[in-house]
């Protein structure tokens, strides 16, 4: 094998990935962690964590993750800020491609976490924080007297339509092709609210503007003049690339693993929120340790 082949590549630098790195590196496996956003993952968002064992008074997410990172560094795992864009299985060798190049390893541990689903239309990333928001209750007050759209067909989205309509001049509710469930009590109120217009069956294809959001284009090619777009979509796994590479998932994108944390591909493991179990830091760390222990055994079998 090439000299720069790692024993283990861990994709994702949240609690599961960092725990896997601690276990693997402590056992002298040549270990690489790839994290494209912030090392620490979604745990960084946690203001105060009161249920992580060992911290009876609680600890902030950033402080806890700083300790994880210190421990990873102490055992010598390599951490690179690179975004994974591809994954291939060549049997005893796995290849992980990033925007900077590619890395190869005997085993791979997927700890890609979950993320709030994006609309994934042109303009969304460009206007984040400049009219595109993912938290109606947080950012709604900035749109007082303005025109906005709330995208999403779930209950949270329906609820947020009403929240935003308390101050906005006009709210376009865009639930998507499936529409809202008839069970949502908000829907009837929305239909009776003159500030709210439900655009059933329509989808946004582009968010437009210059410095700030100025409008959206819909799938029937019509356009709406808007000041803001609230994207309130369900959470899903961030593992589309892995699915394309043949990693088995359920319908929601959650990676399927066996009792050892191994996916349907030999030598490829998954841990933490990307397998949609627990969604807690404590469960993620446990799964990270389990995957690393299994990967250690597997790596010994690879020549």
């Amino acid at each position: 094998m090439a000299e720069d082949t790692y024993d283990v590549i861990i994709v994702g630098g949240g609690p599961a990935g960092l725990t896997a790195a601690i276990y693997a590196a402590r056992h002298n496996l040549k270990t690489l962690v790839l994290e494209g956003v912030k090392v620490g993952g979604r745990a960084l968002d946690a203001h105060w964590i009161e249920n992580y064992p060992g911290f009876p008074d609680g600890i902030s997410g950033p402080d806890l993750m700083r300790r994880f990172i210190d421990q990873v560094e102490r055992f010598g795992a390599e951490v690179r800020h690179e975004t994974v864009i591809g994954f291939s299985d060549f049997g005893d060798l796995k290849m992980v491609s990033t925007r900077q190049g590619y890395h190869q390893a005997k085993a791979v541990i997927l700890a890609t976490g979950v993320n709030r689903k994006q609309l994934s239309v042109p303009g969304e990333n460009e206007f984040k924080g400049r009219g595109v928001s993912y938290c109606a209750v947080c950012d709604g007050p900035f749109f007082k007297g303005k025109k906005v759209a709330v995208v999403g067909g779930g209950h949270e989205a329906a609820h947020d339509v009403e929240i935003v309509a308390e101050t906005a001049e006009k709210v376009y509710a865009i639930p998507g092709k499936k529409g809202y469930s008839d069970d949502f009590p908000e829907v009837q109120r929305m239909r009776e609210n003159p500030r709210i217009e439900i655009l059933d069956g329509r989808e946004i294809t582009e968010i437009t503007g210059s410095d700030l959001v100025q409008g959206v284009r819909l799938d029937d090619d019509s356009q709406l003049e808007l000041d803001g777009v609230f994207v309130i979509l369900e959470r899903v796994g961030t593992s589309g690339i892995l699915q394309e590479a043949g990693v088995a998932t359920d319908e929601g994108g959650c990676i399927l693993v066996d009792d050892n944390g191994m996916t349907n591909i030999k030598g490829v493991y998954a841990a933490g929120d990307c397998s949609c179990w627990g969604m807690q830091i404590a469960t993620a760390t446990g799964m990270g340790a389990r995957a690393a222990l299994a990967a250690m055994k597997y790596v010994k079998t690879v020549k």
């Binding site: 968002d45 203001h47 947080c138």
Partner: peptide, 9 residues
Amino acid sequence: SPVCPNCPA
């Protein structure tokens, strides 16, 4: 904002 989950951090 007092209702923003990320603001305390």
